[in-house]
Simulated scan of single mutants.
Amino acid sequence: MRVIVTIQHPGHVHFFKHAIRTLEARGHDLHVFARENEVTVDLLERAGIDHEVLAGESHSLVSLAAVQATYETRLLRRARRIDPDVITAIGGVAAAHVASLVGATSVVFYDTEHATIIKTLAYPFADVVCTPECYQGDVGPKQITYPGYHELAYLHPDRFEPDPAVLCDAGLEPEDTIVVMRLSSWDSSHDVGQGGFDDPVEVVDRLEDAGATVLLTSEVDLPPGLESCRYTLEPDRMHDLLAYADCFVGEGATMAAEAAVLGTPAVYVNSLALGYVSELADEYGLVFSYNGEDRHTRSLERAVSIVEDGESSRWQRRRDRLLADRIDVTDVIVREVETAGSAVDPGRSTPTPNPG
């Protein structure tokens, strides 16, 4: 098969990287296209994935529309030259549009129910939409569900083993109490009008008073007093750090889920709720989600209590139960891409409907 993978966010690199290697090892011809967004290109380079950057970064919703148009136009040109069997992506706006124009089958993965714009622009054109079983929404006959989360495509123990050297490299000791904190920019199309912490400085001060060392990763400029807490190692080593952290506190759902599947309790502070975050909270007790008007105060109280408690074995037991219930999602990616490719007619003037 000829397969195009489109990458528009750092998390997409992690999600697809093992599937790309597996598909290439099976003899398929992979073409990876990306746009610059935070550390996306850096992650692709560090993963050793051949790729072409089609568009730059966006810094507002207005510029995002222009960047997306540029990305789709350039992707269409490349796809006409490649003549792909399958185009796959997370969200999949560009993938679904371009696939429909070049006679390829589009396989879209998604887990964000409140991303109305992306769903409206992608789902009607997509051939296959793959979602976790906990996804709160019915996409119709094109939907395929699986028992897992995006984060288990790269943090399942069959795919990832944390490197303890990250502690020394980050200037930490094994006995240190570590909190990883994430601040979001709130400039995605589905984040308009939403919010998280009232005062990040207060959060760091309270956690440090409780005996924690706080390492911050942020999409926005930090207040001067917090610059000393900024995480400065390579971006692909954050998962090693999360695995050894005692708690994650943040506004980003992806990192909250990453922490949870690694067995690190996550305090998620966001006015939005998500199906996979709710399941990690309600079913496994690995995420504590706060999205009401008092979310800042309540989340900080929870984070401090986790730090002061210092109990790690309960989180490991909860993670063990999660892993017993859920699957390696890279296997799902490979299966659905190969299934979509095998369903394409050799003449491929139009794609044959996927039986899923």
Rank of each mutant, 00 (worst) to 15 (best):
V32H: 00
V32A: 00
V32G: 00
V32T: 02
F33I: 08
A34Y: 03
A34Q: 03
R35S: 01
R35G: 00
R35F: 01
R35L: 08
E36A: 15
E36C: 09
E36D: 12
E36V: 15
N37V: 12
E38K: 13
E38T: 12
E38H: 12
E38S: 13
E38C: 10
E38Q: 13
V39C: 07
V39F: 08
V39D: 11
V39T: 14
V39A: 08
V39S: 08
V39Q: 09
T40K: 07
T40P: 06
V41L: 13
V41A: 04
V41R: 04
V41S: 03
V41E: 04
D42E: 15
D42H: 09
D42S: 11
L43E: 02
L43A: 06
L43H: 05
L43Q: 03
L43R: 05
L44V: 02
E45C: 04
E45N: 06
A47M: 14
A47G: 05
A47C: 10
G48I: 04
G48R: 07
G48K: 09
G48E: 08
G48W: 06
G48S: 06
G48D: 06
I49V: 03
I49K: 00
I49L: 00
I49W: 00
I49Y: 00
I49S: 00
D50E: 14
D50I: 08
D50Q: 13
H51G: 01
H51N: 06
E52G: 05
E52D: 10
E52R: 14
E52P: 04
E52S: 10
V53G: 08
V53R: 12
L54R: 05
L54K: 07
A55M: 06
A55W: 03
A55K: 00
A55F: 03
G56P: 02
G56W: 01
G56C: 01
G56N: 03
G56E: 02
G56I: 00
E57S: 12
E57G: 05
S58M: 11
S58Q: 06
S58F: 15
S58W: 14
S58I: 06
S58H: 11
S60P: 05
S60Q: 09
S60L: 12
S60T: 11
S60M: 11
L61F: 08
L61Q: 05
L61V: 09
L61G: 04
V62P: 01
V62W: 15
V62G: 07
S63E: 15
S63G: 11
L64W: 11
L64Y: 10
L64P: 00
L64G: 02
A65K: 14
A65Q: 09
A65W: 12
A65H: 10
A66V: 15
A66F: 14
A66C: 10
A66P: 02
A66Y: 13
A66H: 11
V67M: 11
V67K: 11
V67E: 10
V67I: 15
V67T: 13
V67D: 08
V67F: 11
V67W: 10
Q68R: 14
A69K: 15
A69L: 15
A69C: 12
Y71E: 06
Y71P: 01
E72V: 14
T73D: 13
T73G: 13
R74M: 06
R74P: 03
R74D: 05
L75V: 07
L75A: 04
L75Q: 04
L76R: 09
L76E: 07
L76T: 05
L76P: 01
L76A: 09
R77P: 00
R78P: 00
R78H: 05
R78L: 03
A79H: 07
A79G: 08
R80H: 11
R80A: 09
